[in-house]
């Protein structure tokens, strides 16, 4: 069984894994990071989106062995010192979640899309979230939240 080293939300782990073990199951079943849920088996829903070396990926479609040596950030590793990340806060303010199942992946995808465009238009946001499905919100408030989160994050950068 391959042995992998992986950092998850700042904690280093070494794990012996079956080659077929999916990253999301490593996170959930082995490391207890159950904040990242699974919503489909075809890379469509995006609920399982995490950051892998700083880029959004769908953790149901990455093998744990492929993440050997990598740095993973999940929804549980976003906030610092018990406070919410500005994007999490923006989702709260704009009522951008209802059942909350898509939320971890949606927040990750939202943060990722700001890497390319820190001040995205509505269309850019909608396109940037095309790989993350939500069944509750109709997306309107998610789009607003991402815009708000972008402003907050921009502010955070500008005011050291």
């Amino acid at each position: 069984m391959p042995r992998i080293a992986i950092t998850v939300d700042g904690i280093k782990h070494e794990e012996d894994v079956e080659p077929r073990l999916l990253l999301v199951h490593l996170l959930r079943d082995r490391l207890g990071r159950t904040g990242t849920p699974v919503g489909c088996d075809t890379t469509n829903c995006g609920a399982c989106t995490v950051m892998l070396d700083g880029r959004s990926v769908k953790s149901c479609s990455v093998l744990a062995v492929q993440a050997d040596g990598c740095d993973v950030v999940t929804i549980e590793g976003l906030g610092a010192n018990g406070s919410l990340h500005p994007m999490q806060q923006a989702f709260h303010e704009e009522h951008a979640l209802q059942c909350g199942y898509c939320t971890p992946g949606m927040v990750m995808a939202a943060i990722d899309l700001l890497r390319d465009d820190p001040d995205p238009s509505e269309e850019t946001i909608r396109r940037g979230l095309e790989g993350n499905l939500c069944r509750c919100t109709g997306y309107c408030n998610i789009v607003r939240a991402v815009r708000r989160g972008a402003q907050e994050m921009g502010q955070a950068v500008r005011t050291p």
Binding site: T43, T49, L52, S56, S61, A109, D112, G128, E130, G131
Partner: peptide, 9 residues
């Protein structure tokens, strides 16, 4: 192609 997360991998 697909969506941003898929394009990353």
């Amino acid at each position: 192609v697909a969506d941003p997360a898929v394009r990353h991998r």
